[in-house]
């Protein structure tokens, strides 16, 4: 089975954020980046499926030079090859523009299955995989919590999360795009051997011109959305912040919960 995994490198969700000077995005200087959480689960799912079918996993990522680190990690975890879509023309794309570029890169070879995370922890459109499926004309599912191969690899039995604690089970024909939810599996750690091997695995870099893509159709230029500004949310009335060391703060809080909020 030939499996492609699309991953995104995003700021570490634990990182303290600062705004860029122009106020339109976060300041990336000194910001730690990691593989997007649900994409890690997508990669693990791909590696497991490839092991079962003696298949190949090719990992794709779009982004600037720093993305190389995310791809190297994916290779260390067991992906066979990496493709880096790296071109200033790709930057700042919305879900449609990014999927258009990924589609061009993925179409150069043939895959049975494309896996990706359900949502990125930065822009959070939750849509790129679905749009990608649209470009291919393949079926897809979002928020996938289980994937099993059926009828000799011709289709998938897919568990997808619904609201209010229910899952729906569906059968989807391959080829398809599956957008994986965090929690579907337990992502492995990279072994020392894996890290060493990653250095020798092929990493390809592709620019818009390599994919015969019009720079006006991808990235910020090819997007219908433009982020005008970002800001820390206004807290409405805001929380009453309680100061002091742990013990003092705890005592003050208990007092307030009794006398102000009257919930104790």
């Amino acid at each position: 089975m030939r499996i492609a995994v699309c991953i995104k490198q995003v700021p570490d969700t634990e990182a303290r954020l600062r705004l860029r000077q122009d106020g339109r995005w976060v300041d990336e200087e000194d910001l730690p980046f990691v593989i997007n959480e649900s994409d890690e689960y997508a990669l693990e799912e791909a590696l497991t499926l490839a092991e079962k079918t003696e298949g190949e996993v090719v990992v794709f990522s779009l982004g600037p030079a720093r993305v190389k680190e995310a791809l190297r990690k994916a290779l260390a975890l067991g992906a066979h090859r990496a493709v880096h879509l790296r071109d200033e023309a790709f930057d700042g794309g919305d879900a449609l523009a990014t999927a258009r570029a990924l589609h061009a890169a993925l179409s150069r070879e043939s895959f049975d299955l494309i896996l990706t995370g359900s949502q990125s922890d930065d822009s959070g459109y939750g849509a790129t995989g679905s749009v990608l499926a649209g470009f291919f004309g393949w079926p897809h599912a979002w928020l996938v919590m289980g994937i099993d191969l059926e009828d000799g690899g011709g289709s998938l039995r897919v568990v997808r999360e619904m609201e209010s604690g229910m899952n729906e089970i569906v059968r989807i024909a391959l080829p398809a795009v599956m957008e994986v939810q965090a929690g579907i599996n337990h992502p492995r750690y990279a072994s020392l051997k894996g890290i060493m091997q990653a250095k020798r695995k092929p990493q390809e870099v592709l620019a818009a011109a390599d994919l015969s893509l019009d720079p006006a159709a991808v990235g910020a230029a090819g997007s219908r959305l433009e982020v005008v500004s970002v800001a820390f949310p206004q807290s409405g009335d805001g929380a009453q912040m309680i100061e002091g060391d742990a013990s003092t703060a705890a005592k003050t809080l208990v007092e307030k919960l009794r006398k102000e909020a009257r919930v104790l």
């Binding site: 959070g124 433009e226 500004s229 970002v230 800001a231």
Partner: peptide, 10 residues
């Protein structure tokens, strides 16, 4: 955006 840490105007 950023998991709700920021609000973007679009």
């Amino acid at each position: 955006v950023m998991g709700g840490k920021l609000v973007a105007q679009v």
